[in-house]
Amino acid sequence: MPEQLLFAMEVTLNGLMAGVLYALVALGFVLIFKASGIFNFAQGMLVVFAAMTLVGVQQGQVPFAHLINTIFGTKVHDFGWTVPTFLAIIVAGAAMVFVAWIIEKYILHHLVGQPDIILFMATIGMWYFMHGFAPLMWGSEVMKLDVGLAQGLNDPVLNATEALFGYGFFLDNLDIVAAVIAAILVASLVLFSQYTKQGRAMRAVADDHQAALSVGISLRFIWVLVWSLAGVVALVAGIMWGSKSGVQISLAEVALKALPVLMLGGCTSIPGAIIGGLIIGVGEQLFEFAIGPLVGGATQAWFAYVLALIFLIFRPQGLFGEKIIERV
């Protein structure tokens, strides 16, 4: 097989793995959008916040240490203990549920019935708020996230491809783990929404708010539930992403790429989020591989957005979205 093609295959494979991460963030968006019609711009920030909280708890950091020190002239930094990873994940998950509750109680609850675009702008406000709040709570240095996931290159893949093509593919163990975990997460979300009472209620709300209310489903509970789920999904995405490249606030901007993923897939579709993520992951890697060198590189900065934009012109509802019929 020609070298270039093998290269391209490796790039594709790596793109698929990056796409899984986008899909994980997009999944959180879809959950919220389906149940409440809210286009949650802040999902990427939730990912960062979840990851920071996890690291902070794990390493026994004092929250708001910076602020406390400045106000009281103290020099606190950490409690001097480390929390076991498993426990830290649970605490971070609980924190995300708490965040969901706060968001519902103090923001969404007061914006019921407002135009979608107002809610959208409110989530941009949330994005901004957390942009300041997350580093205020956990500091602004790059945090190293290690929950014991396999790191480094995957040797079996390297050896197998070496034997097969005479050219070994470089693939991170972490990426493979991420793909597996994403699959498990999606499967359990589908099971949850199909086979549990809460899941059914969630689907009912997604279908028709009024009808769901009239059969006695608590809208507020469902909203807290989906935002919590989205928070937990964000935590998983944060763990994957953070293990790979460390945790810092600028990650949120990368996570914004979940937006074009979502639009490509159609906002209401879980398979759409996944396939959209994979298309964009692969697409931007291949584009950078093939065209990038000709135009100065770093095309990943915009490729996802431009692709989604062009795609939407031809199919505004996305790949799996429902067609909108306009009426007077």
Partner: peptide
Amino acid sequence: LAAELEFIIVGALIVIFLI
């Protein structure tokens, strides 16, 4: 720290105004 507080205040104000 002032910069972080600025983010928080602006974000909160946006939400408050929208509400």
